[in-house]
Write a protein that binds this DNA or RNA. Structure first.
Lengths: 249, 249
DNA sequence: CTCAAGAAAATATTCAACAATAATGATCAT
DNA sequence: ATGATCATTATTGTTGAATATTTTCTTGAG
């Protein structure tokens, strides 16, 4: 092929090498994945569109191994659907999928809170209580939803530290996948003044009492609440994609 | 290197190509992984032993790509620990790890039962009730523990069918990892006459009432029960490895 | 119009070469 | 002798090309 024409619509990049791909010491595939991620989230690449390996090789000037690996990374993130022997295409996020993602989050965050309640030292529990107080305070001051999200995720992440390596891997996996829908979460939090705070208070009380089952149940309820709200918001907006919000820590 | 001497102790195989690796149409890496799996479970390869890529290449007569992939597969199954830039070694399964595995199983099976209770049709619920009756009946007849395990897993698998693709992937992943400890499960079931059957009855009742939270809670309790029993058995036996039992469906 | 056979296109797998990293051992100053 | 520094070596990580397999498209006969 020749030097290619890069003016047409639907092109992957605006120039042959779309990004410096400067990450020299870090695997190149990550850089390619990152670049594609941006274009998927900014809707330059539209849902359903095929991501051909050969095309990626040309556009990024890399071999098929890295193009292939980049697609797998995006597949893990849920940004592309990989069909066996057929290729990868930009995935359209449906309300159902986001809904189901919260089902998983509820199960795994419930696990995290349960083991934290059982295994954390008294000092660690005290820290969690302080964090929750901070969260409730921020909620009372009606601080931006992004801050609420960040605080919540920080608490859950810390608690997940008490879980096994396998569990932590699953949790960070599902967190990667939901990161791209936080804009909806923000809307949900802003829309509903009551919010999930009553559940947070119950988590707090259960931590004090070291009642792992109760803490876990209340944590799950936080996620079920968010599940309902996010689904409601997505449906009312016709579930069309939004620009992605700032990600959590 | 030359044709190699295959008589020494600590060799990976008894001949250069340890298994026909006949699976022509199926990825060769799976065959290699299967072969290694057997030798790990039969303790021919002992915990802590390094699995060198170059060695595997020689022993199985394959390229480094497939050796590498085989090790990754075993890593997913939890049979080897892969250390960055250092290699893969046969993992020693600790009681703590098995214990934590049941924590994950409880969370994910709880999810499966919850969504099944919410989403299954009346006919499907009826099937689940019948399956549970069959399980309870088998328990009453004191049938072999393997059968109890198989029936339980069958029910959970069917219910997991109502969950999202992501959730199903996680469930089958954790199932793969626990498959190798079913021998302990069998012992646990045989040792404890009461068993988890009271919890199963509660799951049944909750399904009838379509009470998803209660069904989920009772399902988790089944796993927490098994968690305690398996840990107890492993500790009492010094947690030394057992020959693996027949796997579930 | 339907269906089957073959050609074309795309992905899947494997390998071999090169790069980067961690372990080993030798050398030298103290 | 001891300890630190640095070259050497063994081992894994990464990548591009070659080959195999699968899917899709085309074409032509009935």
């Amino acid at each position: 092929m020749d030097k290619t024409k890069n003016h047409g619509a639907g092109q992957l990049g605006t120039s042959k090498v779309a990004e410096p791909v400067s990450l020299g010491s870090v695997p190149v595939a990550n850089a390619v994945a990152r670049s594609l991620r941006e274009r998927i989230q900014s809707n330059v690449l539209q849902p359903g569109e095929w991501l051909r390996e050969a095309r990626l090789c040309r556009e990024f000037g890399v071999g098929r191994s890295v193009a292939r690996r980049a697609l797998r990374i995006l597949g893990e993130d849920g940004l592309v659907d990989i069909e066996e022997n057929r290729g990868a295409r930009v995935s359209a996020t449906t309300v159902e999928e986001v809904f189901d993602l919260y089902e998983i989050r509820a199960a795994l965050y419930g696990l995290a809170v349960r083991v934290a309640c059982m295994r954390a030292s008294d000092a660690e529990i005290a820290n969690y209580l302080a964090d929750i107080d901070q969260l409730l305070e921020a909620a009372g001051e009606e601080q931006p939803a992004e801050r609420i999200i960040a605080l919540s995720e920080k608490i859950f992440s810390a608690m997940a530290g008490h879980a096994s390596a396998d569990a932590q891997k699953m949790i960070s996996s599902v967190r990667r996948k939901t990161r791209f829908h936080y804009s909806y979460v923000a809307l949900a939090i802003n829309a509903q003044a009551a919010g999930p705070y009553e559940h947070w208070r119950k988590v707090r009380a259960a931590l004090v009492a070291r009642d792992a089952e109760q803490a876990s149940q209340s944590a799950r309820n936080i996620l079920y609440f968010m599940q309902g709200e996010v689904a409601r918001i997505m449906l009312s907006r016709g579930s069309r994609p939004l620009a992605s919000a700032a990600a959590a820590p």
